[in-house]
Design a protein around this nucleic acid. Structure first.
Lengths: 233, 233
DNA sequence: ATTCTGCATTTTGAATTCAAAATACACGAA
DNA sequence: TTCGTGTATTTTGAATTCAAAATGCAGAAT
């Protein structure tokens, strides 16, 4: 078939996902800005200078401003009419509200999960969970966190409610930001691992109410820890 | 859930900054576009021509495209790379997911409400409710609907969770769109009025669980009716 | 007739330009 | 000094311009 030697400098054509498209510039910029805000490279409350960002990204103002509109809609930054933009502050009160909502969504996610997860899905979750726990035992913080995010996302995917999935995704950005701002301690790690255990067990029992409760509880405690970290500073 | 946030002054905050500012052009355009999509003036699935919209709005492409970015983020339209945009379709499955989430949020709203609404707030709600019911008796559909929206919004405002408020606002846009698409019949009116009655009673009893249940149920039934209308229609 | 190819036209993506608003600063009066 | 006031500079809002991609279509090849 296609085992004829390709030209040396050609990019592979038959790779990747079904459809692969070149992202618009504003999407790239938005993604990069999100990162910068998340990791505190742009400090909360800090004014954003369009010109400076244009220079660092080496793009013109048009795509940059389009990206700003998107981030503003996501609540990551605020647009001040005629005065540019500033990074949204992380206020404990707001974060508390955020988790209060997340707890409900997690509950829904759990209930749906228990009724919709089949054997294959559960096996996949268990695998993710095991790998995550391995990182936990190795104290590999970054990997643990990354897998944790992925696991949570996968759970909601399996729950099968698209609206819920999008919502959680967008709220998770804020949660992550709060986490960074709170510089969450490792102390919570152990507790968190136990909660994950409980979640997995409820899932394997197909115990909808139990799963909902476990997931809510996990989110509630995470919220408490984050807010604690924020308040203590 | 236990109070995490510090007491803070429980001041009712219907005191939005009365600062008067001229809206940006893209905000005006976005608002108008939202209306057009909502009322079906731009049909679901229909392609959006930038040029044509520029001409009808009499603005240049820059603010128009910024508005499109915002609406895309809200899920009202979809951006097709290099091929403009199209109005998002209203699919029964998606609408079902939407209401599933809304039911949970209403439940949260109800529980918070019962614990946070003071006498003044309850009196205000009762007033809105009475006025709404007057429109119901007069069969003034438009006014009833407008006041209904306002009442629901006010309930969530009083519940005092900002994140929840924003979320409901953005989801309500989609709900309203589904409603239009379903061309919701009057048959549901009467039932809806009864449910509102139940909500008000639970609120006045300060019955948190009862209120949560009533509000969830109301949203659940609304969803059923809308989806029914979508599938039949 | 059907499919393919190449070109002209249209539409979108992004940079640039122009105008309006906000900011910074120097100067003068109380 | 401190407070305004007026002006120059910077920054933002929006229109325009330029380039790249997609679309439509005529004619050729099958």
């Amino acid at each position: 078939m296609d085992d004829i030697a390709p030209p040396a400098d050609a990019t592979p054509r038959h790779d990747e996902a079904p459809r692969l498209r070149r992202l618009s510039l504003y999407e790239v910029v938005a993604e990069r800005l999100r990162e910068m805000v998340l990791e505190g490279e742009l400090p909360p409350g800090g004014r954003i200078s369009e010109k400076k960002l244009c220079e660092t990204f080496e793009v013109s103002r048009t795509p940059l401003r389009e990206a700003l509109k998107v981030l503003a809609n996501e609540g990551i930054i605020e647009l001040l009419p005629n005065r540019g933009a500033k990074v949204t502050e992380v206020e404990p009160r707001e974060v508390a509200d955020l988790f209060e909502v997340m707890v409900e969504l997690e509950g829904l996610s759990g209930r749906l999960l228990a009724s919709r997860a089949d054997e294959v899905a559960i096996a996949e979750i268990r695998d993710l969970h095991d790998r995550m726990m391995a990182h936990y035992r190795q104290q590999e913080r970054q990997d643990y966190f990354a897998l944790n995010q992925r696991l949570h996302r996968r759970l909601t995917e399996i729950a099968g409610n698209r609206v819920l999935l999008e919502l959680e995704a967008s709220l998770t950005v804020k949660v992550t930001r709060a986490r960074y701002a709170a510089n969450l301690q490792l102390g919570r790690w152990e507790e968190s691992a136990r909660e994950h255990q409980a979640i997995l067990e409820a899932l394997e029992r197909r115990d909808g109410e139990g799963l909902a409760r476990a997931m809510r509880e996990h989110m509630r405690r995470t919220g408490e820890a984050v807010i604690q970290g924020l308040v203590d500073g």
